[in-house]
Nucleic acid binder design. Sequence first.
DNA 1: CTGAAAGCGCTAACAG
DNA 2: CTGTTAGCGCTTTCAG
Lengths: 357, 357
Amino acid sequence: MNRIKRRRDAPRTNRRGTRSRRSAYRAPTVRDVSAAADVSVGTVSHVLSNARNVSPETRARVQRAMKRLGYKPNRIAQSLIRRRTMAVGMVIPDVANPFFAELARGAEDVLAGADYALVFGNSDNDAHKERRYIDSFKERQVDGMIVAIASDAESKAILEFAKQTAMVLVDRAFKDWSGDTVLGDNSLGMGLAVNHLVELGHRRIGLVNGDPELSTAKQRRAGFERSLHRHGLEARLIREGRFTLDSGQEQTRDMLALPEPPTAICAANDLLALGALLAAAERNVKVPAELSVVGYDDIAYARLAQPRLTTISQPAYEMGAAAARLLLQRLASPGRRSEHQVVAPRLVVRDSTVGLR
Amino acid sequence: MNRIKRRRDAPRTNRRGTRSRRSAYRAPTVRDVSAAADVSVGTVSHVLSNARNVSPETRARVQRAMKRLGYKPNRIAQSLIRRRTMAVGMVIPDVANPFFAELARGAEDVLAGADYALVFGNSDNDAHKERRYIDSFKERQVDGMIVAIASDAESKAILEFAKQTAMVLVDRAFKDWSGDTVLGDNSLGMGLAVNHLVELGHRRIGLVNGDPELSTAKQRRAGFERSLHRHGLEARLIREGRFTLDSGQEQTRDMLALPEPPTAICAANDLLALGALLAAAERNVKVPAELSVVGYDDIAYARLAQPRLTTISQPAYEMGAAAARLLLQRLASPGRRSEHQVVAPRLVVRDSTVGLR
DNA sequence: CTGAAAGCGCTAACAG
DNA sequence: CTGTTAGCGCTTTCAG
């Protein structure tokens, strides 16, 4: 009893009785509030969480004390005992890619609305980096994660991880994954692009692709090939690289140097398509007159490019928001069946594609 | 003693003696490890943190136990007692703005290298939202924050906050702020733009500006006016709005409808400039032949626009990285003098500006 | 070199 | 309706 008394009276002194020297300021705690309002800590906690009835007068007194002291609950302490951090991790390849920036925005907006904090990691499509972020987030006890997975290189670990904490895959998945997903229909989308080009009379159509280990790249390639075959065409002009502008430029440069260059190019994302435009400009190949180009994603800059880019549109913001909503749902009811949302791609015709004359 | 024994033997049972029903799995704790290795929890903690000497045999035994159990320290518990979360908050207006996406990348890369997690908030340049994120991050006990502040509306609260936790302002600041900063020289930058235009023979130069309460907008406007005056010109053609593409389009549309429209436009960022290009296209005003446009920031898409945008370049990635480094330094030595880094703007001439014939 | 135990700030079971 | 108190998982004295 004496010991406890001492603690309540002098909470700011350490065992030696000296005030801690570093940082004079120390945020008020439940104990400070309870002392100020002359109630027990339990009561303070309860007015905070509304977990049980507290008489109006007591409540008011406590709230006044809180305000006066500028009390804010320490979320870390809450997390420790509640076993919930109210934080979710997100790992995407690169925020500097507008598609993922939008996607992140979508996720953040819904998560913030539910009082979750978003902690971020850019994997650069590197399975190692991705794994490091996931591990780090796990140690930090995030309640869940949203990830645009780089490859299936770490699939074992991911699957293991997902058993322990909520996880939804967005934009990209891997086989063996059976949890929640929000994915585009990449094969269909690429089909749309090919159909458009074929309808315009193109026969020699090339594919400028991203990192071949990514599920999006695989599926877009598959869609490309399938669709060409369906039209009785061969899929020979295929390049792969990374999902970057530079790679797009390089791949296109390469293709345009062919004895029989393509008359049209499908790029697996808009960055690649923009790179293709640059490569064409280098060689003085006119787009769309001499080369049609279609992109994928419909980032904001697609319509600002010259010529305005025909592309396969995907609602990045919505995909992020949907992934976040799915995560929230799973957090609320861990037992529910997993859900697989697929968002439909849409062809947006602008000025970078034109009929073969 | 009996009580303690019980705890060590049955740590996974709650007070009623029933196993918790939810989540069969529970991560191993120091206690589990200590039991498995037959040492005290203190020893386990010490092999983890190397805080004191532990005999090689004991250490090995503990490490084996850790590995066997798959033990990972609980960062939340560590944070609570160490009073460090190894997390930093970042609030920027919008990741979907490539300038800030790059900046965020820069910060994240250096922070991740130092084992800090980055938690994110988009303020949309809304002082309220910004304040909410800052409060939230504070409750979450972040070790520090990097913020591109919206306005001085909440400056009181911000200053108060900064007394308690490390904070560096990036890209934007407010008067009264005397802490660490990484800022561009906006006035100088705008001067560069104006000089360039004047040298090309332009006399009727308009300013398309962003949110007037932002320090960047104020300074860029000031630089614009000062520079024009220095050339003996009046600064009459000034519009303000938001730092978005749409706003740029709108402001420019408005200006071009004037009886005496400008022959050149300074836009306070590239998004605005891109909007200006759109507005010009609408009216069939040729850029640069009939209207020169210069942007600000030099986002990746500036050189992809048509025409390629002349702009004032700022190293967004480096600014983010520098801010993160500053924060790390302050975290390491809280007493150090605050540092004010200013990054030099650079004129990049491309195709959107041309001499008046 | 090691163990015991007191907390970090909070929640929630238990006992009035 | 309110107070007491045992922990959450970890670190860090203090005592051997």
